[in-house]
Design a protein around this nucleic acid. Structure first.
Length: 684
DNA sequence: AAGTCAGTGCTTTTT
DNA sequence: GCACTGACTT
């Protein structure tokens, strides 16, 4: 058993004996440690672990917190402790109380499926209004934004499509567009209803609505829950607040957050949930944690300087308990291949000369896309790495193919899964699939699906598929269902993905089976499995270590987006491409709030470093930008150069280096063909 | 009607 | 690498 040491502020929060508490904790002040110790403290003082629920933003964070609480307790004492994301928690509640939430046999749809549904709804209806064309994906975004922020459709359209402009032209365009959008969104909602789909937002909405309206629901839940511990409170949005609000009367809230690290406003996050905590929650207190234990003072000086330049007053000045260390480095490069190679050099040098392990390194990027060249270089130079925040395991095409069969067994109304599964069969395309689907839909409730399939597809194909369907339906073990489905589909899969079948995709199916086996029912696998993150190790999928024992090679560099790196820390932290147009991103330039959010993104990145902080930047984009002033709104004097976050940085905050050209010439480096670096190598 | 392939354009951030 | 398109074959 291992107790975490606390300072007086942390201890005060951990041992808080009032009703509700918000802990405002700056970066590196021991936020995670405090929430972990709080859970352990509650259990130690006699609270039933099954009545504590920890809520976080990612499954990874949830798992990590629960594991660390357990290691703080005598063995098996914390086994009943629950940690989940808002979404998976709601999903669990819906599964556990089907009658309460009225969602008996439903399927959770992921963003890909949402898009497919929206495309079906739009059909040939191209939303074109003069210059403005609205894509199905944008409709989904507007819909989700409106529901998460509780804003009207008009407001959501204005913010998402018109950058929040409020002039007469915008108002006119809005009035033209709105009725069309409304029709499509209503059709989308109707389709979800018929096919028993719940999208991510529905999961929260179903639970929040029921809790708000139904006293019985509150009574039932209050019997099973005493403490709610919420991590990253600054990233909760109005919908999530609507979900939390009823619990004020049901249990004790313990929330931790930092307004300077709020980086999810694109998803509707609203730091009012932090600022108005005391007003909204009766019987509540707010504590602050201000001593930074993570970083050396030089790293905090740079972070403080960045935040101080903001027009927003965060009232934050981090001070290091640890004292002084290395000055942060700013590495000037001319292109991303040079940058990637420099990063690889640095890491290899630290590994061999400085006795640092690969896992002491965290490489952060604004976007997932930007790490592509870095990954290519790491593979070529044999640096082990994992990526966080990439495409989900369950979203991969070959996985979705197989899962489509399980989905139609689980929910025969699942149109998307039907189409996917049927068109997977050789000789069946979209037209025939729709026809077969039509027969399934028209069949009366409770009709025998295998029989319908048999009739819809005369001949051997029909009977094969029909038998497969019944045979899977009979199984009770989810892993066995995966096996059966794989046996039937592997030939087709191997052919369809023959290009990278042996190297990449084939190996995912044993992983899928392992994942499936960890769920008691098919419904839970399909619902929650979707919400489960995978990480990629050197380009191939692995599931979180708790599920798969990957003891081999735990030493690897972590490559992550800043958004996925919340809560992470590392000895050496490298922030890629801190260049104009990236910080702030060129998308944000004419929106002040977006610029400030980008500033917080960089702030989060900088404060991950414990001892060595390295920023890289592309000098070619600096000179390009300095020569050009952006067209700006009347009266404003903004330009890329002026809004660039490192503009005007005092010389003493960083040590600059400029890397001489060393690998090939500029033309070579700029050719995208460089990706071929990886193809000729030995993967063993 | 279904399948294949080469060419094109496009890539914020996440549950 | 990805989704999508258009032209082609089966």
């Amino acid at each position: 058993m291992h107790q975490e040491k606390l300072n007086s502020g942390q201890r005060k929060a951990v041992e808080f004996s009032g009703k509700h508490l918000l802990v405002l904790a700056g970066a590196g002040t021991g936020k995670t440690k405090t929430i972990i110790s709080r859970a352990a403290h509650l259990i130690n003082t006699g609270v039933d672990p099954s009545k504590i629920q920890i809520l976080t933003f990612t499954k990874k964070a949830a798992n990590e917190i629960v594991e660390r609480v357990k290691s703080n307790l005598p063995q098996s004492q914390g086994n009943a402790l629950n940690g989940a994301t808002f979404h998976s928690w709601c999903n669990q509640l819906i599964v556990r109380y089907p009658n309460l939430f009225g969602a008996a046999s439903y399927t959770v749809v992921d963003p890909d499926d949402q898009l497919s549904i929206m495309k079906m709804v739009c059909g040939n209806n191209k939303l074109e209004f003069g210059k403005l064309r609205i894509k199905p994906q944008q409709l989904i975004d507007v819909y989700s934004f409106a529901r998460n922020t509780k804003k009207s459709l008009t407001q959501a359209l204005r913010i998402k499509l018109f950058k929040n402009k409020e002039d007469a032209d915008t108002d006119y365009e809005l009035s033209v567009i709105k009725p069309h959008v409304e029709n499509l969104l209503r059709a989308y909602q109707a389709k979800k209803g018929i096919q028993r789909y719940l999208d991510y937002d529905d999961l929260l909405l179903v639970v929040a609505t029921q809790l708000g309206n139904n006293p019985e629901a509150r009574t039932i839940l209050s019997q099973n829950l005493d403490y709610l511990l919420v991590d990253e409170m600054q990233d909760t949005n109005p919908l999530q607040w609507q979900l939390l609000d009823p619990f004020v009367h049901i249990c004790h809230l313990f929330c931790v957050g930092d307004d300077a690290q709020s980086i999810y406003s694109f998803r509707g996050a609203d730091f009012k949930n932090v600022h108005l905590f005391k007003e909204r929650v009766p019987d509540s207190e707010v504590y602050k944690l201000e001593k930074n234990y993570r970083s050396t003072q030089e790293i905090l000086d740079l972070s403080n300087w960045l935040l101080k330049k903001s027009p927003i007053d965060y009232k934050k000045q981090l001070e290091s308990i640890r004292g002084n260390g290395e000055i942060p480095q700013l590495i000037n490069v001319t292109d991303e291949w040079q940058e990637a190679n420099w990063v690889a050099d640095e890491i290899l040098k630290n590994y061999t000369d400085e006795d640092r392990s690969f896992s002491d390194h965290l490489v952060l990027s604004r976007s997932q896309y930007y790490t592509k060249s870095l990954q290519a270089v790491f593979i070529r130079r044999k640096i082990p790495y994992v990526t966080y925040g990439g495409r989900k395991f369950m979203q991969a095409a070959h996985i979705k193919d197989l899962v489509s069969l399980l989905r139609i067994v689980n929910n025969p109304y699942d149109e998307i899964a039907w189409i996917r599964f049927l068109t997977f069969q050789e000789g069946i395309g979209e037209v025939r699939a729709s026809r077969i689907l039509q027969q399934v839909i028209e069949a009366t409730e409770g009709a025998d699906i295998p029989e319908i399939l048999q009739n819809a597809m005369p001949g051997e194909d029909g009977s094969k598929i029909s038998k497969l369907y019944s045979s899977i339906k009979e199984k009770t073990n989810v892993g066995a269902m995966v096996d059966e489905a794989y046996e039937a589909m592997s030939l087709g899969l191997a052919f369809r993905y023959r290009r990278d079948w042996d190297e990449k995709r084939k190996g995912d199916f044993p992983v899928l089976k392992l994942l499936a086996q960890s769920y008691p029912t098919l419904g839970e696998f399909i619902g929650e499995g979707l919400l489960d993150n995978a990480e990629q190790m050197n380009g191939t999928n692995v599931l979180s270590e708790s599920k798969l024992n990957t003891d081999e090679d735990k030493d690897h560099v972590i490559i992550s987006t800043v958004h996925s790196a919340k809560g992470l820390e590392a000895d050496v932290c490298i922030v890629l491409n801190v260049s104009p147009k990236a910080f702030p991103s060129s998308w944000s330039l004419d929106d002040l709030e977006a610029i400030e959010e980008d500033r917080r993104v960089l702030y989060v990145a900088l404060t991950r470093a414990k001892n060595r902080l390295i920023l890289t930047r592309n000098t070619s984009s600096i000179s390009a930008v300095h020569n050009r002033t952006l067209p700006s709104r009347a009266g404003e004097k903004t330009s890329d150069a002026e809004s660039y976050f490192l503009e005007g940085m005092p010389d003493n905050l960083v040590e600059q280096k400029t890397i001489a050209q060393q690998f090939g010439n500029v033309q070579d480096a700029a050719t995208p063909n460089t990706i071929d670096l990886s193809s000729g190598m030995d993967f063993s």
